[in-house]
Amino acid sequence: MNIIISNASDKPIYEQIYTQIKGAILRGECKDGESLPSIRALAKELRISVITTKRAFDDLERDGFIYSVQGKGSFVAAKNKEVLREEYLRQAENKLEEAIELGRSGGLSDEELKEVFLMILKGE
C-alpha cells in the first residue's frame, strides 16, 4: 500500500491518509484482516505527528473500514458488501448532486438534465 502525503495540498494530512487507506481497501489492495502499520510506525515513516495519524485511523474505524485490537494494532475490517455499496452510493449521490447544481446554476432545466443523465447512462 502506498501513502503519499503532500504538504502543498489543501487537504489536511489526516484526510489524505484517510482517503488513501480507504482507497486501498476499496480497491482490494488490502485483504480482509490484514494488519495495518501501527499508528506510531506510520507517523515515523510519513514524518507526521502521532495525533494526525491517529485521527485518520479513528475516522477509518468509525466508518467501518478498519478495526483495532487493544495492544495489537489495526486491521482491515472484513468487507461488508452492504457498507461498501452504501459508500459508493453515497459518493455517487454526491457527484450527481454536484452535477445537478452545476446544471441548474447554468440555467438548464430539470428535463434537460434528466435527458443528459439518461443519455450518459445509455452510453452515448
Partner: peptide, 24 residues
C-alpha cells in the same frame, strides 16, 4: 513534523497550547 501539540511562549507568557493540526 514531529509535534502533536504546539506550546507558544512570548515575553514570559504562554500565548497558547494547541493541537498542531487544529492550528492549521
Amino acid at each position: 513534523k514531529l509535534c502533536d501539540y504546539i506550546l507558544f511562549i512570548h515575553d514570559g507568557r504562554i500565548i497558547f497550547e494547541e493541537e498542531k493540526d487544529m492550528l492549521t
